[in-house]
Amino acid sequence: RLDLIKYAGASGDFNPIHTIDEEAKNAGLPGIIAHGMWTMGNLAKLFSNLYETGFIEEYKIRFKGMVFLNDVITLHADLKERNGDRYFFNVAATNQSGKEAISGEVIFKTY
């Protein structure tokens, strides 16, 4: 919960469905949900240990489901192809039931 409150402040997205249980329930949700961009940012962290060797050149994501407060999210990055100095990954964030919250592609370019 605290991470979502901090993210709201950092991003400027103060939609109360991300931080206030009652407001989320009034919107028809079972509870607060994480910001989609918060999940997307966490997924990008999979590449942070590689930033000395390159950078994310392209990041395409499709939002597919909601992340609820007590979900356990697993982040995936599977290399599908290499072409010279570019590495093409399929990426996803899935919850404890295996349902995807986001999925997409990353192109990582080395120096």
Rank of each mutant, 00 (worst) to 15 (best):
F47Y: 05
R1M: 09
G9W: 00
E22R: 14
K60L: 04
L46I: 08
P30Q: 12
I5Y: 00
I5A: 03
T39R: 02
H35Q: 06
E57R: 14
G41Y: 13
S48C: 08
V67N: 11
E57S: 15
M37H: 01
L50W: 14
A8Q: 03
W38N: 06
G54F: 10
L2V: 10
E23R: 01
L43I: 08
Y51C: 02
G31R: 00
I32N: 06
K64V: 05
G65T: 02
D13V: 03
I32F: 02
F63P: 15
G28C: 15
G41R: 13
F63C: 04
G9I: 00
G12K: 05
E57D: 14
G41I: 11
F14C: 10
R62A: 15
T39L: 12
G9Y: 02
K60D: 01
E57Y: 12
N15P: 02
H35M: 01
Y59F: 14
F55S: 05
A24G: 12
N42F: 07
F14Y: 15
E52G: 03
D3C: 00
F68Y: 15
G28F: 14
Y51M: 11
E22N: 10
L4E: 11
A27E: 14
F55K: 13
E22K: 14
S48F: 06
Y51S: 00
E58N: 12
A10M: 10
P30Y: 13
A24T: 10
I20L: 02
K64F: 05
K25I: 10
F14V: 04
N42W: 06
M66E: 15
I17W: 06
I61T: 10
Y51A: 02
K6H: 03
D3Y: 07
H35W: 08
L4Y: 10
A8D: 10
